[in-house]
Design a protein around this nucleic acid. Structure first.
Length: 825
DNA sequence: GTGTAATGCTATTGG
DNA sequence: AGCATTACAC
């Protein structure tokens, strides 16, 4: 029997072996879903399916990367490399570029993130002379997004009675016009927003039957992870690709209980109706939970049983009883944070846990502030995985706008953002004159800058000159990017645009941190390029094109275009900006949404209060509550060993104190799984009745019940507790000067280049590459275990001759090879 | 045209 | 509370 099958339980194996025809795998939390998916792909390859004919879609880059890596371990990198594995968005972008002319886009189209989209909407609102209070940009975008997800195009929108009726009721009758305006703006800019990627994919398959045939014909198998989170647009793409086949080789994996993205268009119906869509479907249910203790699984089950809309499924924990869930009561959000911190510290003390074993989950990003403060006070290293991330900082967005405009000269929104950042004396008056000229001639702002009739629009010669200097700079780098790697272009651009210099010249802490962020971005491009080259070289080595790593330095690697880098980071999610392992030992802070797909030994869910979790906001319908309940289910089921649920009597929200009752969800978990269930007096009394439960009791009393007021956050430098702190530069950031992480934030480079497994694997001691010695037992991501025979060369060209247990002897360049030291003994 | 002060506003979740 | 846009003085 195949080795791949040996590690699976019976149901998992059946799901893996069932290669042909539609397959629905209902996979409960912790049931080995990823293992099944990866095993199934590996098994298919082993059975002779051509990997380049397999498409596997995930929601995050991280998930795709992990899977690809695991598959590479099973079948070898050489085969795994050819899989079409990636996020919906990245795979579809790749296809859209190829067939872009049939949908009226240049193949070099760029991608707008949400904030770009919002400013584009703002432009449209102004253009149509509408009031931005009745037409709030965010709301308008949400509405358009919804339409796109439902495959209602701008042209079809006015015919959609339902939508038009809704708009009339909402007193926003011009929405159709706005949609059209926005659509025109994006198209003429050669830009897509996130939703366009899916919408245009549908349009492509519809308007160009040859493309449909071609694309569908490329793949024998399609697999989809997290199917419960697909939206209508995604569903239709899959259906189109399956349409004309005798056998529908579509395998979807998901858990209806973990559907938490309805707000962005996900349709739980997709998974609920899969069997109807494909009547020949074979369904497999993975109900054995290998992740969590019985108490955790039972608690989660008792909670989710309150939902009506569910596929039949009953998860059973394989593991031991474990601890009961624990409630932690606090007066304020600040105290809550202190209690969590203390609890973490005593866990570490008593159970020998590490920082990386902990996650603190919450409903809203804003909750992270208090937690950060408490953790920082006790010197607990942490990492925030969401919210105000690296790419949301103004200076990074500015730099990104430079890059976008360089790649795509038609991008007027980016043009407007940076034409006068840093100040170049091109003010609002000049800009609107230029806009008028561009509009008159139907050309982009950048093109308009070179017209000879600019004076007739009221522009002075001096202004024209300044504008042209700016445009020249952009165009120069555009040309440069045709022949030079992304890193060279970004470096040059960052010098030429003067943004970096303007921060450097300013001596404020604020500006220095901004400059540092730009440095970070530049080094991330370098990392991206190095990584690409490394992959290329490793591929050559594996294909046998090079025998000797000595010749590596002479190899000419293919161009790494700026556009590739741009696309890569445009499609990052917030868990992607994450570095695993490699000395990264921190408590993880993130929203419950971001935590999906992850696991931790110890999980704290903070803010278990009505109006927060479940979220208040809109008049919550039962459907909304069900989604919140699923979200809470997701949160709990992240835990392997223990769960603590915390709530505060009152917390600051929007500058006001707010008091909310403990979350109804705390009552919905069957009390026998909770150590200290909710009491009647929980609204009033919050005495320190917490007791001797290891790890969930108070620390050494070093807390202040009423939330010690924050001392300066910006002044005190952040600390790093990374054990092997080689390149650890403190990372301060954010416009407010607040420190988001008390250790160097992992860089984009980390996100892009790390291919290591998540920290699940405790067999490895993280090491930096210069720590290897002859005789060391190591593990390579693809070749598995081996021993170093010899190290030669000079830094950074260190080479190691390694004999692998299963792959024989190889000479690898240490700076490219993904190697970890296996732990001793 | 640029910089700073005051005002107003607005709040999930995210690729 | 924090932020973003606006209002106003240089």
């Amino acid at each position: 029997m195949s080795e791949i099958l040996e590690q699976l339980n019976q149901e998992q194996r059946r799901a893996v072996e069932c290669i042909d025809g539609p397959v629905l795998i209902v996979a409960g939390a912790g049931s080995g879903k990823t293992r099944v998916l990866t095993s199934r792909i590996a098994y298919m390859i082993e059975k002779g399916v051509d990997p380049s004919r397999i498409m596997a879609l995930t929601f995050t880059k991280k998930a795709a990367g992990e899977m690809k890596e695991r598959i590479a371990r099973m079948v070898g990198e050489k085969k795994a490399r050819h899989l079409w594995m990636g996020t919906f968005h990245s795979v579809f972008v790749r296809l859209l570029r190829e067939f872009s002319d049939s949908i009226g886009y240049p193949s070099s189209f760029t991608i707008y993130d949400t904030s770009d989209s919002v400013s584009a909407i703002r432009t449209c609102i102004k253009q149509l002379g509408l009031d931005d209070k009745t037409y709030k940009p965010k709301d308008v975008l949400a509405r358009i997004s919804k339409a796109k997800n439902a495959l209602v195009t701008a042209d079809a929108y006015p015919d959609n009675h339902r939508a038009m009726e809704d708009d009339r009721i909402a007193k926003r009758p011009k929405l159709a016009e706005l949609y059209k305006c926005y659509d025109t703006l994006l198209k003429s800019s050669g830009v897509m927003d996130f939703d366009d990627i899916l919408l245009n994919m549908n349009i492509l398959l519809k308007v160009n039957p040859a493309a449909l045939k071609e694309i569908a014909g490329r793949f024998d198998h399609i697999l989809v992870d997290e199917y419960q989170d697909t939206n209508f647009a995604q569903y239709r793409i899959l259906r189109e690709l399956m349409k004309d086949r005798p056998v529908h080789n579509l395998c979807v994996v998901g858990d209806d209980s973990q559907s938490i993205y309805a707000f962005r268009g996900a349709r739980i119906e997709n998974i609920l109706n899969f069997q109807k869509d494909f009547p020949e479907t074979k369904t497999f249910r993975l109900e054995m939970n290998y992740r969590s203790t019985k108490n955790i699984v039972n608690a989660a089950n008792s909670l989710i049983s309150k939902n009506e809309d569910r596929l039949p499924k009953h998860c059973v924990a394989v593991g031991g009883e474990g601890e009961k869930l624990r409630l932690i009561r606090a007066y304020t959000a600040e105290e809550e944070a202190v209690l969590i911190t203390s609890s973490i510290l005593s866990r570490i003390r008593e159970a020998g846990a590490e920082y990386r074993d902990f996650a603190i989950l919450y409903r809203t990003n804003s909750q992270s502030r208090a937690l950060e403060e408490a953790l920082r006070k006790r010197n607990v290293p942490y990492m925030i995985y969401s919210g105000n991330s690296f790419f949301e900082r103004a200076e990074i967005k500015d730099m990104m706008a430079y890059l976008k405009l360089t790649v795509n000269n038609s991008d007027n929104e980016s043009f407007k953002r940076i034409v006068n950042t840093p100040a170049r004396g091109i003010g609002a008056t000049s800009l609107s004159a230029l806009e008028a000229a561009a509009a008159k001639n139907g050309i982009s702002l950048l093109e308009a800058a070179y017209r000879s009739d600019l004076e007739s629009f009221g522009l002075r010669a001096s202004a024209v000159q300044k504008i042209r200097e700016f445009c020249d700079m952009i165009r120069r780098h555009g040309e440069m990017s045709l022949s030079q790697n992304a890193d060279a272009v970004v470096k040059s651009l960052s010098d030429a645009c003067g943004l970096y210099r303007s921060f450097k010249e300013d001596n404020s802490v604020e500006a220095q941190s901004r400059a540092a962020n730009i440095e970070e971005l530049v080094s991330s491009v370098t990392g991206f390029v190095e990584d690409r080259n490394g992959e290329y070289i490793e591929a050559l080595i594996e294909d046998g094109a090079i025998q000797d790593a000595d010749s590596v330095s002479e190899i000419e690697c293919p161009l790494v275009p700026l556009g590739d880098f741009l696309e890569d980071i445009s499609l990052l999610s917030n868990v992607d900006v994450v570095e695993d392992s490699d000395g990264d030992n921190r408590v993880a802070l993130m929203t419950a949404h971001s935590a999906k797909g992850l696991e931790f030994p110890y999980v704290y869910v903070a803010g278990m209060e009505e109006n927060l979790f479940p979220s208040g906001g809109m008049l919550a319908s039962e459907k909304d509550i069900e989604e919140e309940r699923r979200l809470f289910y997701v949160a709990i089921t992240r835990a392997k060993t223990a769960v603590a649920l915390t709530f505060a009597n009152s917390r600051m929200r929007n500058g006001k104190h707010e008091s909310n009752a403990p979350s109804r969800f705390l009552r919905e978990i069957a009390p026998q799984y909770i150590e200290n269930p909710l009491r009647k007096d929980d609204l009033r009394s919050r005495d320190t009745e917490e007791d001797d439960i290891p790890g969930f009791r108070f620390g050494s009393g070093n807390y202040r019940p009423y939330g010690a007021k924050s001392t300066s956050t910006a002044a005190s430098g952040p600390r790093s507790f990374t054990p092997s702190s080689s390149a650890s530069r403190p990372f301060t950031a954010s416009s407010s000067g607040a420190i988001r992480s008390n250790a160097p934030m992992s860089t984009v480079k980390d996100a892009l280049s790390r291919r290591t497994l998540p920290p699940k694997n405790e067999d490895f001691v993280p090491e930096t590459m210069d720590c290897f010695h002859t005789g060391d037992r190591i593990e390579h991501n693809r070749f598995g275990f081996g021993r170093i025979l010899e190290i030669t060369g000079n830094i950074p060209e260190l080479k190691a001759r390694i004999v692998f247990d299963n792959y024989g002897e190889k000479l690898l360049l240490l700076k490219y090879a993904k190697i970890r030291r296996a732990s001793l003994g």
